[in-house]
């Protein structure tokens, strides 16, 4: 799966204006870190609902940017949260790695 679907990214860039995309990338990257922190905290507190919400927001934003891989991973975690199944194994580490790849590519595309 590609890190970033350039078709989706370019459509987003065009529709919001090229000068705005950097601001939008910043909001996404900042919020993604917060969302991943929230998932970690919720996991420790065994709070499936907060976990699900954080995964849901991360999934939504990743999809907006065309981050296909990251979207799929976040969706999987959202589903687990919905089913109150927090046996996520190493998935939080995996999603962090996927995020770093997205971050690198987005920074190159600014």
């Amino acid at each position: 799966m590609p890190v970033l679907d350039l078709n989706t990214f370019n459509t987003l860039k065009e529709s919001t204006g090229a000068d705005f995309i950097s601001e939008l990338i910043d909001a996404f990257l900042d919020d993604a870190i917060i969302q991943m922190d929230e998932m970690r905290t919720a996991l420790d507190a065994n709070d499936a609902e907060t976990f699900r919400r954080a995964a849901h927001s991360l999934k939504s934003n990743a999809a907006t940017f065309g981050a296909t891989d990251l979207t799929a991973l976040a969706r999987e975690l959202e589903m687990m949260g919905r089913e109150k199944n927090l046996a996520v194994g190493n998935r939080l580490e995996v999603i962090k790695e996927a995020f770093e790849l997205v971050k690198r590519q987005l920074n190159e595309l600014r």
């Binding site: 529709s15 204006g17 996404f28 919020d31 927001s57 934003n61 907006t64």
Partner: peptide, 16 residues
């Protein structure tokens, strides 16, 4: 929308 990125992307598209 409670999601900041959604708010920004939607409102900006509509402003454009």
């Amino acid at each position: 929308d409670d999601n900041k990125v959604n708010r920004m992307a939607l409102s900006r598209s509509l402003e454009v």
